[in-house]
Every structure is written in C-alpha cells, then in structure tokens.
Amino acid sequence: MKILHATDLHFNQRWFKFIKDIESNFDVVCITGDFIDAFDEGGIAPQIAYVSKWITNFTKPVFVCSGNHDVGLAYEQEWLNDIPNIYADNAIKEIDGVKFGCVPYLRPNYEKFTQCDVLLSHVPPAYTKASISACGDDYGSEKLYNAIGKQVISPKILLCGHIHNPIKNICRLKYTTIYNPGCDRNLKEPRIGVVRI
C-alpha cells in the first residue's frame, strides 16, 4: 500500500490543488491537521467551507486528524467529522488489511487505538527528532511519547506534523516509525511523505 502523507497545509489553496492532482498515484491519502489558518483575515468559516468541498472530491480513501489551527472556541470544533466520505477524528478503519486510526487534537484517548497499524496524530511524540524544531524547541506530546514508550499503543507507522522544521523527518520510537514531512510556507508545493506499508 502506498500512502500520501501531507500536513500543516494552512489553507494554501495551491497546495490543496497539488495534493488532489497527485492523488491517483496513491492508494490512501492521509493529512495530519492544520488545514486552515486560524490567523487568516478572511475568517474561518470560508476556509472550512472550501476545505470541506475540496476533500469530498477525492476518489481514494482519505484519513485526517485535526490540528491546533482546526479547533477553537470561535467555530465548530468537530467540523472535520461533518465531512462525508472521509475518516476523521476518532475514526478507525481497515483498508486492505491495514488498520488506520485518527487521533483528535483535543482530548486524545490513545488507548482507543491499540490495534492500529497506521496512526495519524497532528502532534508528534515528545523527545523525538520529529518533535524537536531546528531551533531546538520540543513541541511534542509527552502523553503520546508515554503511550508508545510504554507500549500502550504500538503502531507500525505514526504520521504527524505540527513541527514545521523538525530535526528529522523520519525517526523511530520503540517499534514505531514516525513520519513528519514538515512545512515550508515559501514553497510552491507542500512537503509530502510517501509511505509504503
């Protein structure tokens, strides 16, 4: 199975188009949060409407999880779950023998995802090279680090984002390979990961 992984799109419409254009080269599409830009002057509602329409046009299975820009008090926090025909926060679905799980940004319950082979989480586990930025700050999740470290969950693959310029895009924690393609808003195309399982 060939997985397209993207993250931290921050309402870059050119990047949305790019991902849709290459969809046919993959079996599954996974996007790990921050679809919208919470600081965009155009407002949140038009961004949610645009992303919702865009994502319904995919023909391949789409798995998504929310990021910190996708949730907030000023708008519907679970709007991703309202989009038909995709797998969003808290979803677990098996495709061709591979079980995917989508961890929400708010109040994640990792124990729910014990059987997942591929886990989507916006935030990477703390203390990993995928969670430490190039300037040395660690913005990872200690709770996720502990869940994997203590083998409460043992996904083969963890797809994440949040850290735009991690020290490493691919690293390991216990038996889990962590992928964070990062994000560079100056690029014409999004950074993507191609993951095979």
Results as ranks from 00 to 15, higher is better:
1 M>K: 05
5 H>E: 05
10 H>W: 02
12 N>Y: 05
18 F>G: 00
21 D>F: 01
21 D>T: 10
23 E>S: 11
25 N>C: 12
25 N>L: 09
26 F>N: 07
27 D>A: 06
28 V>A: 11
33 G>K: 11
35 F>I: 02
37 D>W: 11
41 E>P: 14
44 I>W: 03
44 I>F: 05
46 P>K: 02
51 V>W: 04
57 N>V: 07
57 N>M: 12
61 P>Y: 09
64 V>D: 03
65 C>I: 04
68 N>V: 15
69 H>V: 01
71 V>E: 13
71 V>K: 13
73 L>K: 15
74 A>V: 15
74 A>H: 14
74 A>D: 15
79 W>Q: 12
81 N>E: 14
85 N>F: 07
89 D>R: 11
94 E>A: 01
97 G>H: 00
97 G>W: 00
99 K>T: 14
106 L>N: 14
106 L>F: 13
111 E>Y: 09
114 T>Y: 13
114 T>M: 15
115 Q>K: 14
116 C>R: 07
119 L>D: 10
122 H>K: 14
122 H>Q: 10
126 A>K: 04
127 Y>M: 08
128 T>W: 10
132 I>Q: 03
132 I>P: 11
133 S>P: 09
134 A>T: 10
136 G>H: 13
137 D>N: 13
147 A>G: 06
147 A>E: 11
150 K>R: 02
154 S>H: 01
154 S>K: 01
156 K>P: 03
157 I>E: 00
158 L>E: 14
160 C>M: 10
162 H>L: 10
166 P>I: 08
166 P>F: 02
166 P>C: 07
170 I>Q: 00
173 L>M: 14
178 I>V: 04
178 I>Y: 02
180 N>G: 07
185 R>P: 08
187 L>F: 04
189 E>F: 00
190 P>I: 08
190 P>D: 03
191 R>C: 07
192 I>M: 09
194 V>E: 09
